[in-house]
């Protein structure tokens, strides 16, 4: 039962990895690519960690796996903020779809 539940969670997590890898390759600028990447850490890795934690041999191992997820969440969100704010300060401004936007190309 636990095996099945764990496998189900992992299978649910894999599409997020595929989707955000495609996003990383196909999206036009650094901000949208970051947006795609963070989905993996939040949801995809979360589901896979959940799947592994359900299958774990003891509560301690399960908690360690969840702790890994929590640490990656902290690190990746901070990293994404750093890259985005650094890009805002030094790099190109975010692309906008409607050129009539009054804030465009600020």
């Amino acid at each position: 039962m636990r095996e099945l539940l764990g496998a189900g969670f992992i299978l649910l997590g894999i599409p997020f990895f595929i989707a955000s890898t495609v996003g990383l390759l196909r999206f036009p600028d650094v901000y949208t690519r970051l947006h795609a990447l963070t989905k993996v850490d939040n949801v995809g890795l979360g589901l896979i960690c959940l799947g592994l934690a359900v299958q774990a041999s003891s509560i301690a191992v399960a908690l360690k796996i969840v702790l890994i997820w929590g640490l990656i969440l902290l690190a990746s969100s901070t990293g994404a903020t750093l890259i985005a704010s650094s890009a805002l300060r030094h790099g190109p401004p975010p692309l906008r779809s409607d050129s009539d936007d009054s804030h465009a190309g600020r």
């Binding site: 640490l71 902290l74 903020t81």
Partner: peptide
Amino acid sequence: HYYPGLPTLARWL
């Protein structure tokens, strides 16, 4: 000043 998250993360971790 620019990246308030980083020093906080370093201290928390």
